[in-house]
């Protein structure tokens, strides 16, 4: 009974803290609310990429493809056909998932550098199409005039909507990370051969991860279209893909907090530093290099234990969320763990 109460309290704490953090920007001027919204959208995108790069170990340089096609789908449906936001969302997700299916069948046959280049290639072809197929995509100018879902039009109300979407997304990913499926993916990353020998259908598992990552990335894309009101070829560019990958690596691949932290740092640095100096790119570059030297596994694994020590009462919570390498016992399948780590670690 007591254990259950403590568990519920821990959960209550978590919800409260997340809620507080998410609600914080609402008091600030619209520029900062918008900025926070951007951060949340990129955090969702980074988290979806992390499913591929961090958990499964496949570095995709073309994740913008899922992001971009969903954004363009929503934009097209909104501006050309005037459909409701619900249909925009479902269509966007659907197209991203379909892209994930088709793309996944193609890219899952290779690994390493070739995987990076193939995913990049797909995204670049789509980008070229977006730039040049003016009739469909508006070319380099893009598709403007996208409206937001009806009750959430103002800056603040849309931000609340985004925060809710982010929280939902976080929950979904947390569930995936903790589940047997997450364990299987990590097992495949560490030793695919062993997983096959254990009878795991690795191709299906990997394809599933790719489709999931594309769908969630597409979710971020639709949100992006709604927030910006305009979709242009940049959403499919290699800059977007690379930036997202950097967020994942900078923050710490394979963890839940890492990509979020990465998104926060990159977006804030780019936006805020550029108001102080024109040399924001140098600042970002130096930041990346310093991170490698000081925290090669990413900033989150380094910072979090320190924060946990400071906030002693919240230590249990921070330590329990998304510790990529060693997930806590609750929610683990003990037999699967034993099977993948027979040495007992």
């Amino acid at each position: 009974m007591r254990g259950q109460r403590a568990g519920l309290m821990a959960w209550g704490f978590r919800v409260m803290v997340v809620g507080m953090v998410l609600a914080a920007p609402l008091g600030l001027p619209p520029f900062y609310v918008n900025l926070s919204g951007q951060v949340l959208i990129y955090a969702i995108l980074a988290l979806s990429l992390d499913l591929l790069a961090g958990v499964l170990g496949l570095w995709s340089l073309g994740h913008a493809a899922a992001f971009g096609v969903a954004a363009y789908t929503a934009a097209f449906l909104a501006e050309r056909l005037g459909v409701s936001w619900g249909i925009q969302l479902i269509s966007g997700l659907g197209v991203a998932a379909a892209l994930g299916c088709v793309g996944g069948l193609v890219v899952m046959r290779v690994r390493g550098l070739y995987f990076m280049m193939l995913t990049l290639g797909i995204a670049q072809v789509l980008w070229a199409l977006a730039e040049n197929w003016t009739g469909l995509t508006g070319g380099a100018d893009g598709i403007p005039g996208i409206g937001r879902p009806s009750p959430f039009i103002t800056t603040n109300s849309f931000y609340v909507f985004l925060a809710a979407c982010f929280a939902l997304n976080l929950l979904v990913l947390w569930a995936i990370h903790r589940s047997n499926y997450g364990l299987i993916l990590r097992g495949i990353r560490d030793n695919a051969l062993r997983m096959e020998a254990l009878g795991v259908a690795t191709f299906r598992a990997r394809l599933g991860a790719y489709v999931l990552a594309s769908t969630i990335g597409g979710f971020a894309g639709v949100l992006f279209a709604w927030q910006q009101g305009l979709v242009s070829p940049g959403v499919l560019s290699v800059d977007t893909s690379a930036e997202t990958l950097l967020m994942v690596i900078l923050g710490g691949a394979g963890t839940l907090g890492g990509p979020i932290l990465g998104a926060v740092i990159v977006v804030l640095l780019e936006t805020l530093v550029s108001t102080i100096t024109a040399r924001w790119m140098t600042a970002l570059g130096v930041c990346y290099i310093l991170t490698v030297l000081g925290a090669p596994q990413g900033l989150y694994p380094v910072l979090m234990p320190k924060v946990a020590r400071v906030f002693a009462t919240w230590g249990r919570w921070f330590g329990g969320i998304g510790d990529g390498k060693r997930a806590r016992v609750e929610g683990d399948s003990p037999s699967l763990r034993r099977a993948t780590h027979p040495e007992g670690h």
């Binding site: 950097l246 691949a253 090669p296």
Partner: peptide, 14 residues
């Protein structure tokens, strides 16, 4: 790999 991506990308920016 990830360290190299960060280093070389950071240098690209600089």
């Amino acid at each position: 790999e990830s360290a190299q991506v960060l280093i070389t990308f950071g240098s690209l920016f600089i």
